[in-house]
């Protein structure tokens, strides 16, 4: 099945940005509609990136651009890992590394707003990591391997046995997607106390790289949601896509119904959710006999 893996990997690299762009555009239109506004055209993110690339390079730091490009490359490799059915732990690790590359790139700027934003970004990574690691452990407990392709040989979707891990993932997705109530570090709305956070001083090529990285990230995160719904049945892929769409709509609704909370609340709640969801769900496993169970 190597050819299938290669094909999927190439498809991911080529199609994911297009899909990410369209989903981001749809996100903006839906958010606008929830606020009784019209919203821009669905291709607006593409127009934005095109405009950013056409800007004069006046203040771009070479180190910053290289680090941002590395961030993008690592994320693409993470997605390739995922779609080629490779090691899931590697995918999560690369995704985290990509975030760290962004943090390093942003810390190049001396502006106080950027520095505070960088601190908050680090905090965000620390809040997401526990849940993501528990997610990977859950995959291992369910299928017996860290490999994504092993999910396609199960009979039941993973969400049946790991519902709390799923809820925890959706909770953490709010942080990763930078949606209220957890859009504390940097978001597309520059109204915060730290203006645009880590990306305040970036423009032109730097900002374009960040945009494209976010497109890839969107597809990868939605794929993680979809992982809970795939089985050996090929139709389950449709179910996975539907589930990802529903979760995305839910995230947009949550974004428009909550204020932004402070970092202390985000930290406490994300660790609490990770702890509770992980412990309770794994406890369920240790007392029930089932197919992919390793410990008994």
């Amino acid at each position: 099945m190597v050819w299938l893996s290669v094909l999927l990997a190439i498809l991911f690299v080529v199609v994911a940005p297009v899909l990410g762009c369209l989903i981001t555009g749809a996100d903006r239109i839906l958010t606008a509609r929830m606020q009784r506004r019209r919203g821009p055209s669905i291709l607006q993110p593409y127009y934005d990136v095109r405009k950013l690339l056409e800007k004069d390079a006046r203040a771009n730091d070479v180190v910053q651009v290289i680090l941002l490009a590395l961030s993008l490359v690592m994320l693409v490799v993470a997605g390739v890992c995922l779609y080629a059915g490779a090691n899931f732990l590697l995918c999560i690790l690369l995704e985290t590394l990509s975030s760290l590359m962004f943090i390093l790139a942003a810390s190049v700027d001396p502006s106080p707003f950027v520095q505070v934003g960088v601190q908050r970004e680090i905090l965000q990574v620390m809040c997401c990591e526990p849940m993501l690691l528990l997610f990977a452990v859950g995959v291992y407990l369910y299928t017996g391997s860290f490999s994504v392709s092993s999910l396609f040989s199960t009979n039941l979707p993973m969400v049946v046995w790991l519902p709390l891990i799923f809820i925890g993932l959706v909770f953490v997705l709010t942080i990763k997607l930078r949606k209220s109530p957890f859009d504390i570090a940097s978001s597309h709305h520059a109204h915060q106390e730290i203006v645009a956070g880590a990306s305040t001083e970036m423009s032109g090529l730097s900002l374009a790289l960040i945009e494209v990285t976010h497109w890839y990230e969107l597809v990868i995160l939605m794929s993680w949601v979809g992982m809970f719904f795939v089985t050996s049945n090929p139709l389950s892929v449709l179910l996975a896509i539907l589930a990802a769409a529903v979760v995305f709509l839910l995230e947009i609704w949550i974004d428009n119904s909550f204020a932004r909370v402070k970092w202390q609340v985000m930290f406490k709640s994300s660790w609490m959710v990770a702890l509770v969801c992980g412990m309770v769900n794994f406890a369920m496993f240790f007392f029930i006999d089932s197919n992919g169970l390793v410990f008994f």
Partner: peptide, 16 residues
Amino acid sequence: AADAFGFESLFMHSWR
């Protein structure tokens, strides 16, 4: 005030 604590949709609805 809604905008200040990051609740943009409440901001839009109040102004509406």
